[in-house]
Design a protein around this nucleic acid. Structure first.
Lengths: 145, 145
DNA sequence: CTGAAACTGGACGTTATTGTCCTGTTTCGG
DNA sequence: CCGAAACAGGACAATAACGTCCAGTTTCAG
């Protein structure tokens, strides 16, 4: 339902939030299990959107611009691929303005619930979650079956 | 966020629910404002999934198999493109089984909220909604600005 | 100044989605 | 039986998403 690029961007953002210091695209790619060359494009997008800052040269890499408790999942999602709410009737014939029909009202309500959930989760929340599985799944602090 | 095909399928399902009798692909296409040739494919999918029944020849067309109050938005969505919940860690390295990390737990919760919303809306609910905009937006029972 | 590290951006290939078109097959009315 | 109505399904085209590769540019260490 969410695009691959969004998934990649979220993994990268969570990783960068945890690290706190500049990390190269290669490092992020390995930690998040994302194709490096493609991740590069995704990070470029995040950079243009002002989510991350890039620094070239030795010691450079990618850093989050905001503090993890100031950056929500929604911010990241919207930077890559805006979560589009249904504003007007998709059929477009008779613009109902803000009055969507019963079908599209329900679809948009579902979108809204996703938007709200994402808006209320900051990266800090994700990192602080008392969950035995570490956010990027690369390691595990708990026992496995 | 939802694919175009899903949107088309929902429009078609709502229309067929309202009509109650066989309607040809061309009729559905006009009412729902969907490219007829493409809608044909979408309806074929709904037919294979057992959502609609097709009847060839004169007087034939598409009909809903179930009663509108027995068919949910989720049924239609899943017939076209299954709403995929996140069951296991997308990184796949160390399968955490049912224990998703904090990030994917949140993403899956969002999916679940959509799934639940769709599961609790039947086509009958959509048709009975006291909304001035008629479900397919092609007409309007209320005044417009 | 030089070179390695690291991002930037364009070109390109692959695949999935969306959309079109046409031929065939089933069905029913007369 | 015949023909029109209507779906079925394959072939194809256009577009976007996903992914790869490489040359160029910035930056810092020494």
């Amino acid at each position: 339902m969410l695009s691959q690029s969004v998934e990649y961007a979220l993994r990268a953002a969570v990783f960068l939030a945890r690290e706190g210091e500049p990390r190269t695209t290669a490092q992020v790619a390995e930690a998040t299990q994302v194709p490096a060359a493609y991740l590069s494009k995704v990070l470029q997008g995040l950079s243009r959107a002002g989510i991350v800052r890039s620094q070239r040269g030795i010691g450079g890499g990618m850093t989050l611009v905001s503090a993890p408790d100031e950056l929500t999942i929604l911010d990241v999602v919207n930077a890559v691929e805006p979560l589009q709410r249904i504003e007007t009737c998709p059929l477009g014939l008779l613009e109902h303005g803000v009055k969507l029909c019963a079908l599209h009202r329900r679809l948009d309500n579902a979108m809204k619930s996703v938007e709200d959930a994402f808006r209320h989760s900051t990266l800090a929340d994700v990192l602080a979650d008392p969950n035995p599985s570490v956010p990027l799944c690369g390691g595990n602090t708990a026992d496995e079956a």
